[in-house]
């Protein structure tokens, strides 16, 4: 029981570490790292499910009869490459934010936005 569910529990710990980084840290690059950890934990979950005790890698050969499940491997293989493409998109958004706000800390971006809104509102009141 303990050993049988160990992988799942590690997945949950990793997933929650990623979620914690996304919620609690204000730095946008750190948030993306958190998302990467979260994402990898899902990969580990799928791949652990595919494993069969005593099985071998799903490359057919005559003297092997038991293989691990190939379907999750396919899903995760493509997900990894899609993941890096979307992470790159996120990073380029962060770079553009840095250029226009001068910072990548969430709180400071929010503060600048608020100041701008207040200035706009004052002008409108006049």
């Amino acid at each position: 029981m303990l050993m049988g569910l160990f992988n799942n529990w590690v997945v949950i710990v990793l997933m929650m570490s990623g979620l914690y980084i996304v919620i609690a840290h204000g730095n946008l690059i750190k948030k993306l790292v958190g998302l990467t950890i979260f994402q990898t934990s899902v990969f580990i979950f799928y791949i652990s499910m595919a494993k069969v005790n005593g099985g071998s890698a799903p490359i057919l050969s005559e003297n092997i009869s038991l293989y691990s499940n190939p379907l999750p491997h396919v899903l995760i293989l493509t997900a990894i490459v899609v993941g890096i493409a979307t992470t790159a998109l996120g990073l380029s958004l962060v770079v553009r934010l840095k250029e226009s706000y001068g910072t990548i800390e969430e709180e400071e971006i929010q503060r600048q936005d608020n100041q701008q809104n207040q200035a706009l509102n004052k002008e409108r009141d006049k």
Binding site: T40, F43, S56, P58, S68, P72, V81
Partner: peptide, 14 residues
Amino acid sequence: MDAVDVAFTEAAVG
């Protein structure tokens, strides 16, 4: 975990 293709991708990408 026997997922050699996935490992290959993750090593190159991750």
